[in-house]
């Protein structure tokens, strides 16, 4: 049995009231539901307040470079296909610095889950516009308002027919926890974009801003791509939460020449194998 206590409690660097606290709790609940013990999953994160999350519970963690969590996760998953690999980072890390890797990961469709804490601001560096910050949003670095349009990760992922695209909200923990479970269980690349209020550096997209707009998707068929495209564009007036699109493409690992699923670390170097290399010249 796995219980929430197995993951321990840690002192965090987050502000009181930060959306990260509830995301972390929803995540731990999801891991309990998935029956994953602390040593059975591998978390990969980048840099940012969100990327600190896996430091605050017991797990295997690869805390890598800013923007580069997905490439490392790709390497880990291919070296150990049996591992449950979950990438957890913020919007700046994933969609900004790591935008190229985000697109490549969707195309490649490796069986991993991407959790993005999307607070529409750079919070670690104390409040500059990030890739999902809305146009016109004034910050210390964009005093006349953010000149660029905000990036819509869900629309991009749906447009590319990523295998699993969903959106959650830090203020709706039960649904979020359920979305994480579904994302982990779904084969191929899974995205959970998690809306998260930043109480200190984002005074526009506050808890009540989200609360007024977010609604839970009911009776939506996630296999319906055109409908999903339409839903993914909803933002200013209302924001849909739930599974927006589901695909059933084969994962990258299944297309490998030797899809054994055996972790590569069982391949111990030996004289016989070296001889095999030498024999292959003939």
């Amino acid at each position: 049995m796995v219980s929430i206590d197995d993951f321990g409690t840690f002192e965090t660097a987050w502000c009181p009231g930060c959306g990260n606290h509830s995301i972390l709790k929803a995540l731990k609940n999801a891991l309990v539901k998935l029956k994953l013990k602390p040593h059975e999953s591998i978390f990969v994160s980048g840099i940012g307040q969100a990327a600190k999350a896996p430091h605050y519970f017991k797990t295997n963690l690869f805390n890598g470079l800013h923007g580069r969590a997905l490439p490392a996760a790709t390497g880990i998953k291919l070296a150990n296909p049996r591992a449950t690999v979950i990438v957890q980072s913020g919007d700046g890390c994933t969609y900004g610095e790591g935008g190229n890797h985000f697109l490549a990961a969707i195309r490649r469709n490796i069986n991993l889950t991407l959790l993005v804490h999307d607070n529409q601001i750079y919070a670690l560096t104390k409040g500059q516009a990030g890739p999902t910050t809305s146009q016109g949003h004034k910050t210390k670095a964009q005093p006349k308002g953010n000149p660029s349009e905000n990036f819509n990760p869900v629309a991009v992922a749906v447009a590319m027919q990523a295998n699993f695209v969903s959106r959650g909200f830090a203020g709706m923990m039960d649904q979020l926890s359920d979305l994480i479970v579904q994302a982990v269980q779904h084969p191929g690349f899974s995205l959970v974009d998690i809306l998260q209020p930043c109480v200190t550096f984002n005074k526009i997209n506050t808890f009540s801003w989200y609360k007024e707009r977010c609604y839970e998707l009911k009776d939506h068929d996630p296999d319906n791509w055109l409908k999903a495209m339409e839903l993914s564009r909803e933002w200013e007036e209302k924001i849909p939460l739930g599974v927006i699109f589901k695909g059933n493409k084969p994962s990258f690992e299944e297309k490998l020449p030797h899809p054994t699923g055996k972790p590569l670390y069982y391949n111990k170097p030996s004289k016989e194998k070296i001889q095999k290399v030498v024999n292959s010249y003939a």
Binding site: V44, F62, G64, R68, P71, A72, G75, I76, L264
Partner: peptide, 13 residues
């Protein structure tokens, strides 16, 4: 990404 994946794979054994 190339070196990132190499680091991930190496840590995974």
């Amino acid at each position: 990404a190339g070196l990132g994946a190499v680091i991930g794979a190496s840590l995974a054994g």
